[in-house]
Design a protein around this nucleic acid. Structure first.
Lengths: 132, 132
DNA sequence: GTAACCACTTACTTTTACGTAACTAACCCC
DNA sequence: GGGGTTAGTTACGTAAAAGTAAGTGGTTAC
């Protein structure tokens, strides 16, 4: 089976290259993309990275998300182990959403995506001589 | 008409409202996600990582993609600077698609996604006691 | 010159994601 | 017990992505 960084870094065409491997590559990659895909999961995640929030607070933080979509995304993210829905008994009625420890493991991906995205937008802009 | 990264992302309403900081985060992250999102870009990219391919060869390598969708994705990926469409004059009629140098810069992201995806599937499977 | 092949394109349909708006169920406070 | 807040839900509607199937225009093979 395949290896980690070493082999992949050593030669561009190694690693992810060959057909047999690709079947075993494409599935996990798509799995990973799934959990951060869509219009709202990244914004919600970033909002909760600031700290725990209640339903209404997330809705304020994530601009123009509707309650329907937020409720749906929160459920999915909970199923994937990314957030926890906590009912605080002492402050009755108060439900809080919290990022799990586990969810922080996507942070390196977010960082790489951010860096790539910045540089990519820059590149495209320069190539076309357009405004950002 | 089709658009590319810039317009699409900037037209989206998503984003974290209040924090100025976050505005500068969420946009590039969504930009980056855009260029690798959808059902087919990762499979196409992986196929081309094996080496240059012609239209029909890509179609064979990427299981069940239709010519319509493939043509569309190839155009988008070319606009984003990820692939090059090369017409080989010596072998007439032969058009080849090639990954650009630039496109290899997403490899670290692919690697992280793959690793995360594997481990995530494993985790979910264990939690639910189901088969993969 | 016609048949086959290749690299697409076009028209149409289905599916999925997301949007709008209104509603509900629980609680809290006086 | 009525009015307000919170945390959603429900029914309906729209738009983008992807699927289906058939067609087109240029080249090559005979």
């Amino acid at each position: 089976m395949e290896t980690t960084t070493q082999e992949n870094v050593s030669n561009q065409n190694s690693g992810i290259a060959r057909v047999e491997e690709c079947k075993s590559e494409v599935v996990p990659i798509m799995d990973a993309l799934y959990v951060i895909s869509g219009k709202w999961r990244v914004p919600i995640t970033l909002a909760l990275m600031e700290g725990n929030k209640r339903f209404g607070e997330i809705q304020k933080a994530v601009w123009k998300i509707t309650s329907k979509v937020l409720a749906h995304e929160l459920k999915e993210m909970e199923l994937n182990g990314f957030i926890e829905r906590k009912v605080n008994e002492t402050l009755p009625g108060r439900i809080e959403y919290e990022l799990t420890e586990y969810s922080w493991s996507i942070k390196p991906i977010i960082i790489l995506l951010r860096d790539f995205g910045r540089q990519h937008r820059d590149k495209i802009r320069k190539e076309r001589g357009q405004k950002a």
